[in-house]
Amino acid sequence: MRFILQRLGFYLLAAWAALTLNFFLPRLMPGDPATALFARFRGQLRPEAMQALREAFGLTPEPLLGQYITYLGHVLRGDFGVSVAYFPSPVSTIIGTGLLWTMFLAGTAVAVSFVLGTLLGVAAAWWRGGWMDTLLPPALALLGAFPYFWLAMVALYVFGFQLAWFPLGHAYADDLTPGMNLPFLASVLRHAALPVGTVVVATLGGWMLSMRNTMVSVLGSDYVNLARAKGLPPSRVVLRYAARNALLPSVTGFGMALGFVLGGSLLTEIVFSYPGQGYLLLQAVQSQDYPLMQGIFLVITLAVLGANWLVDIAYLWLDPRTREGS
């Protein structure tokens, strides 16, 4: 328990550091975003708008420390300001819906890829030198080596456009109202199939190879040898003795991946016009929407930290050696 709180404390500190950087970085830049934005519109904005923009960015004449405190207060209340591109929607509502879709899409993709890749890795190591061990890794490595956007576009062209098995974009059919009903959920799954599928295909090889390699070394360890000598059934030797221990390094990787996909599903969402965070970020960059960008960066940071904290907790549960002093 103390360990979990200690880690939580560490991550809170890291989150605070991220918030602070997020506040000071724009202010360290020459000029300010409001002026830059104003200049970009070349006189199409009236001077009053300049003042509104400055306020939207929190650039009040207050001293820096005062601004900082106001900013922290706003962030803690979930107030990231007002979006420029989607004026006058607050950034928090825009990020909210995008975040949900991204969490669904990226979360599913990473979870499926991790579970499938890990199982394949276990199987490849157990039947070392078998067809799964000799054919799959190079095939998956090949798929993983293609630029992801190219793979995604080919999949979209073949399965979405030519064969028309899957829809071409968006998270659900336009003629449906979101809700907990079967047609809507079915539509969501159909729309997620291609984006999730391409991410899984592109990342499966990595999970499989890392699990396979750890598994091979664990299979050579004394305790697995003892488990076999004890006459335990093979399933127990593989799962409880070998895979259970080989899983530990992969779990760390899983936490990292989970955090990064929240920001890194950018390409997926652009290719499949998926209304998630990555898509929002693209739009924010294109329309110079600084408040939205800042909000998204902050959410990504917090997501990475949160995922890592969850992995710490999972690790505690998985590896008794980390439980010391708790």
Binding site: L226, R240, N245, P320
Partner: peptide
């Protein structure tokens, strides 16, 4: 294995599964 022939391994450190 084990019902008739058992074995004590060389390294006391590594012969036990760390997670059980």
């Amino acid at each position: 294995r084990w019902e008739r022939i058992a074995m004590v391994f060389q390294s006391a450190m590594d012969a036990l599964n760390p997670v059980l």
